[in-house]
């Protein structure tokens, strides 16, 4: 193992810009929430806009920096291994983030709701909620004045099933793209990658339509009790991750078009693919636990 090859950039402006951008983003978000009751001030709006610009500048700049270093051949195999380890464990942390929300779903469904309905170990709690019956999906909240109950939930076997099919297909097409890249079949790689990206975007549109339907026809909202809370938080964060994954894939498509990557070394592509597969697996869990069961 040749350590002297390990590329250590001597200094970089991106981390401090990144930290500032991330801070300003969350700060302006917090300000907006803080002021939401009295009206969001111009200061906050400008700050939010500025931080978004800075954030994009940082992301573009930092990644361009990394890509150009890669193109110059500064990255040894060992460094690529660090990237792999980094990306792998980052995805594990993302899994745990979703884990928290899945945990909330299971807890509410298996314990809290039955207890409130008078069943199980703490069923005596039911005496506080006269007339409340435990059921899942929860269509009658313990207090439906504070949390208006939804009139129904999304049917798993219609649009969600279509979405599942699309996302699973997109994982397959992405694998085809990856194989094409490894075999140096650039045209095929571009086509499969573009197909994957399209499936991702259509998925997002369908999801958006589903949300519209939920809000306007089913009164299923964030405010409609624990079912709506877990439903929107899980699918919403998933959707956010699909969006990020799509952006990553789009960048990879551009890089493939520019002739980046070699059949043996294309970590950027692989990282995006890992991320996409992770998002896909989360969806499968969502489909089973949120929609079907």
């Amino acid at each position: 193992m040749d350590m002297s090859n390990y590329y250590v950039p001597s200094e970089s402006k991106w981390p401090i810009i990144g930290a500032t951008a991330v801070f300003l983003t969350v700060f302006s978000l917090a300000m907006a929430i803080f002021e939401s009751k009295t009206g969001i001030s111009w200061f906050t709006k400008i700050l939010a806009l500025g931080s978004a610009v800075l954030l994009i500048y940082m992301l573009v700049g930092w990644f361009s920096n990394v890509i150009s270093e890669d193109q110059q051949g500064l990255y040894s195999n060992q460094l690529n291994r660090s990237f792999r380890i980094g990306m792998g464990w980052f995805i594990v942390s993302e899994v745990m983030f979703f884990g928290a929300f899945f945990g909330a779903l299971f807890y509410a469904r298996m314990l809290a709701v039955p207890w409130l309905g008078g069943e199980g170990d703490k069923g005596v709690s039911g005496m506080l909620w006269e007339g409340f019956q435990a059921q899942w999906p929860l269509l009658n909240n313990p207090n439906s004045e504070l949390y208006p109950s939804p009139s129904g939930v999304i049917d798993a076997w219609k649009l969600p099933f279509l979405n599942t099919a699309m996302l699973v297909t997109s994982s397959i097409t992405l694998t085809f793209a990856h194989h094409a890249l490894k075999e140096e079949k650039r045209q095929q790689c571009k086509a499969w990658l573009l197909g994957t990206l399209m499936l991702g975007v259509v998925f997002l549109f369908v999801q958006g339509y589903e949300y519209y339907h939920a809000y306007h026809e089913l009164q299923l909202t964030l405010n409609s009790g624990i079912y709506g809370s877990t439903f929107f938080m899980l699918t919403g964060f998933h959707g956010a991750h699909v969006t990020i994954g799509s952006i990553l894939l789009a960048v990879m498509l551009i890089r493939v078009l520019k002739g980046h990557f070699s059949p043996n070394e294309h970590f950027g592509f692989e990282a995006a693919a890992w991320y996409w597969h992770f998002v896909d697996v989360v969806w499968l869990l969502l489909f089973v636990f949120v929609y079907v069961l």
Binding site: A104, Y107, A108, L111, A112, V113, W115, L116, S125, L128, W129, L138, N141, P142, N143, L146, Y147, T221, L222, N223, S224, G225, I226, Y227, G228, S229, T230, F232, M233
Partner: peptide, 13 residues
């Protein structure tokens, strides 16, 4: 944002 993760009135705990 109106969720009820930690509020029994909406089925949370």
């Amino acid at each position: 944002f109106g969720t009820s993760f930690f509020n029994a009135a909406g089925g949370g705990d």
